[in-house]
């Protein structure tokens, strides 16, 4: 019993994974998986963003750049080879992780506002390069044909009758669920550990942290690499999900706004915040896109961000905890 309490979180992760798998086996409407995928992807991106933004206090405006580079790494791999989706995800994670390592070195000279602007600049530079790179479709974009009857480790993954999943959307949904759970687990592990405590000290006062023995650069490099890598992994699944990608889609500023707004709305100081924000905002957006219009949905997103930074600086969780304290 105490063992169960000790591993409450891990058990929760497992349950969530099993639940996601069960959902794919119930023959639900495809839209469930389409929308579910989007919400999960948001949750993963927001979680990745928060590792750097929430724990270490470095605001990344370049989420779209990391996501886009993950997507385009996957596209380049698809064009070059018959790499499986898992290989695409790993490659996307590695390339975006390296880009993350790069912005980690930015932090040596750039703090606060300057760092944020530099990440935005980086995203646009990457987008411009992709725009001019014809091999991956350039400005015109590129269509992706999902592999027919893909196998992983000898198991037929997607097949109408014989596969583990009966269609591709179900498979991608499950994959995204697994990736999201992994990200949340990583975020929580960082938060509860020495790395998280060091990052918090950096966020509060970087110079004092350094003088108190915290190897600030090393911790920041680890963090930017992990955060960027996770965003790249989320991006690598994108081409298979959309089947058509062009730079404006892959590098959409909306990702930057969402990845920032979700943790801020949920609460940036704990792993639960980004999830909460993603589920709230993600669901609202998915519903709004269908029922109202996609522009109005973006307007809601912008308004919520502004309202929350003004009225609830510590997000939903912060507001909730303060209320309970009283």
């Amino acid at each position: 019993m105490s063992l169960m309490r000790q591993y409450k979180f891990e058990i929760g992760c497992l349950v969530a994974l099993v639940l996601a798998f069960t959902m794919t086996q119930m023959g639900l409407n495809r839209f469930v998986f389409f929308a579910g995928f989007a919400v999960l992807q948001y949750a993963m991106i927001a979680t990745a963003w928060n590792i750097l933004g929430g724990y270490a206090g470095y605001i990344n405006f370049g989420t779209a750049g990391f996501l886009g580079i993950g997507s385009y790494t996957a596209i380049a791999l698809i064009n070059y080879s018959d790499a499986s989706i898992v290989e695409q995800i790993i490659a996307g994670g590695v390339v975006a992780g390296l880009l993350g390592l790069g912005i980690g070195y930015f932090t040596l000279r750039l703090k606060g506002v300057y760092f944020a602007i530099a990440t935005l600049a980086l995203a646009i530079v990457v987008e411009t390069i992709v725009n001019n790179w014809d091999f991956v479709g350039g400005a015109a974009g590129v269509s992706i044909l999902p592999a027919r009857n893909p196998e992983l480790l000898g198991v037929l993954v997607v097949h109408k009758k014989l596969g583990v999943f009966s269609n591709y959307k179900e498979f991608l949904f499950f994959l995204m669920a697994a990736l999201t759970i992994m990200s949340v687990w990583i975020a929580r592990t960082i938060e509860k550990g020495k790395l998280g405590r060091g990052l918090n000290a950096i966020k509060d006062n970087e110079e004092a942290a350094e003088c108190m023995g915290v190897p600030t650069l090393k911790l920041k490099l680890i963090t930017t690499t992990i955060s960027g890598g996770l965003m790249g992994m989320a991006g690598a699944v994108f081409p298979s999900y959309l089947t058509f990608v062009d730079p404006p889609t892959a590098f959409n500023l909306e990702f930057a706004v969402n990845s920032l707004a979700m943790p801020m709305i949920g609460g940036t100081f704990t792993w639960l915040g980004p999830i909460l924000g993603a589920v709230l905002l993600g669901t609202v957006q998915q519903v709004a896109i269908v029922t109202i219009s996609s522009e109005l949905n973006l307007l809601i997103l912008g308004l919520l961000l502004v309202i929350f930074v003004i009225a609830a600086p510590h997000g939903f969780l912060g507001w909730f905890m303060k209320k309970n304290k009283r």
Partner: peptide, 15 residues
Amino acid sequence: EALRGLAFFFGILFI
């Protein structure tokens, strides 16, 4: 923090 102000303007931009 200056960063919240930045997020504010980012939201304004988007809106």
